[in-house]
Design a protein around this nucleic acid. Structure first.
Lengths: 344, 344
DNA sequence: CTGTTAGCGCATTCAA
DNA sequence: TTGAATGCGCTAACAG
């Protein structure tokens, strides 16, 4: 089976021979070059069909020094929002005629780096990267190979790098300030091990902000698992029946772990405790109580990033805005005490 | 930018020249061939490092007629369970040294076919396919190119095809029978437009089964959207305040649309209506009330399929079981009236 | 142990 | 309009 690629693959030579033309002509037909008689073009097209010839993207890429292949780099753990993002990227890439190669990275720097190398050896024409572990250094390898890259999450910009920074910060601060306004002083941040530095930055910023306003800011370290967090919160609430405060969870499922644990132990949400999910998905409004969250359509984020990349690859000078910041909106739902949002 | 691949790419020639050896020797070093002096090996390794040489997977693949590239084919719409499956596939592929190319298909036959062609032109060494639109015919093209394929969802087996059939049927029937035993007679099936024939088969089987037991079996056509289904169910329940019966939804989010609409309009779940989700994910137990569902770890499904593929590609005779059926377990939760499951 | 050579399948000059 | 020749970057015999 190791030779399955060659055994039965019809090559351009066979087509040429069968159609009584040179392989150059076949190549011209394949690539829609003008200088071919309609007659011979038809003949070639026919034998292509008869032989079931499919050009080898491999050989084409090698000869053209172009792959029509884009790389997509994502953290290994798959969440609803990353899969939405991925979906957006792949859909757009496909519509522009690009194939998508997926590179997943563990939350370890060495792995991220090795994936960047694979990106290079894979000869992708460009890449969209959403990976918190990757610093600018790692990405500089890519620059050397002059492969256009779009970074999601950070603001980076140079000759071969564009970016789609994501702003969750202002939305969070808005939510926290609203909480402060109505008298709240107690913030609890659920910290998952190595969520990436997007979330780390958020935590630090939040910490600073709370300090300024002299609110208490505590951190709960937790696993990235609904079940375990649910258990932990249950024991927590059981040991401390009059818990109150404002809980901030990185994602819907973890936010639900908090609301469910609270509800199941007789605490009222949002009367006793309030809960906010940083990255909201549709499960924000499917859950009961619905979760107040920051809303940003990650499918759209992925689409935009990939659209930027295609422009970047084919027409770099046309890409005016190399930085396209996106902001997540704070959407008030039932898990916080904010005055009801009239838009709901 | 169109020439970015060649411009700065260090080739094997440059390394050979710099290290004062022939390109064959460099190739040997790269591929860990034994017959190289430790001294020259080091010299080559050093200059590789200095020059920052990265072998071109493209040229390698062309020369070796092997790509170490696997194709993954999935429907375009991304659900939690497909992304879990994808995650499992990619993780395993990576651990075996394969890169993953993603091919997404619209729910249209022509598109599925064109993606199969891309699979061929892409020179993947093998592919895992989960796509309900693809019949055996379409897949036969792959056979001609002798590319090993693992199909998820259907039972197919021949020289170049293995499969991981998924059995949701027996679980569903078990649930429905239990409903029958406790006196229930009214089944309602939520049918999403072109969910694929996995779900279609299930519906037909269910219909037959209900007919046999003289239960009523009605179908509600609905969109693939939580929000719209929620609205539809709301008006339905409003117009019909004493609705009862057993609702079967294809996925958690749609099942939640039913339970939420019911609950929000004062109906009790599971006292008034019961709800079952066919493909259950963690949102089955995150939602309130929790959703009874068929449970099958799709990450595992993806992992298994990909592991089969790697065996299939490298050592086809070693793959004893070319069909590896997986069965989804019926897990009782709060949305149905089954006697409580002691395992919970 | 190392170098020479001939492809892999195709695009693209340059002649004809 | 077409064909012959060359090369993309690398591997794999085959010599030496």
């Amino acid at each position: 089976m190791s030779d399955n690629q060659t055994k039965n693959r019809v090559t351009i030579y066979q087509v040429a021979h069968q159609a009584n033309v040179s392989l150059a002509t076949v190549s011209r037909v394949i690539n829609n070059h003008p200088n071919v008689t309609e007659k011979t073009r038809q003949r070639v097209l026919d034998t292509i069909k008869v032989l079931g010839y499919k050009p080898s993207a491999l050989a084409q890429s090698l000869a053209k020094a172009k792959t029509t292949n884009v790389g997509i780099m994502l953290p290994e753990n798959s969440y609803v929002y990353t899969s939405n993002m991925l979906s957006g990227m792949v859909t757009v890439a496909k519509s522009y005629g690009f194939r998508s190669s997926l590179f997943v990275t563990k939350r370890i720097k060495a792995d991220a780096q090795s994936q960047v190398e694979k990106l290079i050896t894979s000869h992708v024409d460009g890449a969209v990267i959403y990976d918190d572990e990757l610093s600018i250094e790692e990405l500089s390898i890519l620059k050397k190979y002059e492969v256009p890259v779009v970074i999601i999450g950070h603001e980076i910009e140079d000759q071969f790098t564009a970016s789609v920074p994501l702003d969750f910060k202002s939305g969070i601060l808005q939510a926290v300030d609203a909480y402060y306004e109505r008298g709240g002083r107690e913030i609890t941040f659920l910290q998952v091990d190595s969520e990436g530095f997007l979330m780390d930055e958020l935590r630090d910023e939040l910490n600073r902000h709370c300090r300024e306003k002299s609110m208490t800011f505590s951190i709960i370290d937790c696993d990235d698992s609904y079940q375990r967090l649910y258990m932990d919160m249950c024991t927590r609430f059981r040991n401390n029946p009059n818990t109150h405060g404002y809980f901030i969870a990185p994602r819907d499922s973890l936010a639900c772990a908090v609301t469910n644990a609270a509800t199941d132990l007789g605490l009222k949400v949002p009367q006793d405790i309030e809960v906010l999910s940083v990255i909201g998905t549709k499960y924000s409004y499917i859950a009961r109580p619905q979760i107040s969250s920051l809303s940003l359509d990650m499918f759209m984020v992925g689409s935009i990033a990939m659209r930027m990349l295609t422009k970047f690859m084919t027409n770099p000078e046309k890409l005016k805005k190399k930085v396209y910041p996106l902001k997540a909106n704070y959407v008030v739902r039932g898990s916080t005490n904010d005055p009801a949002d009239p838009t709901l």
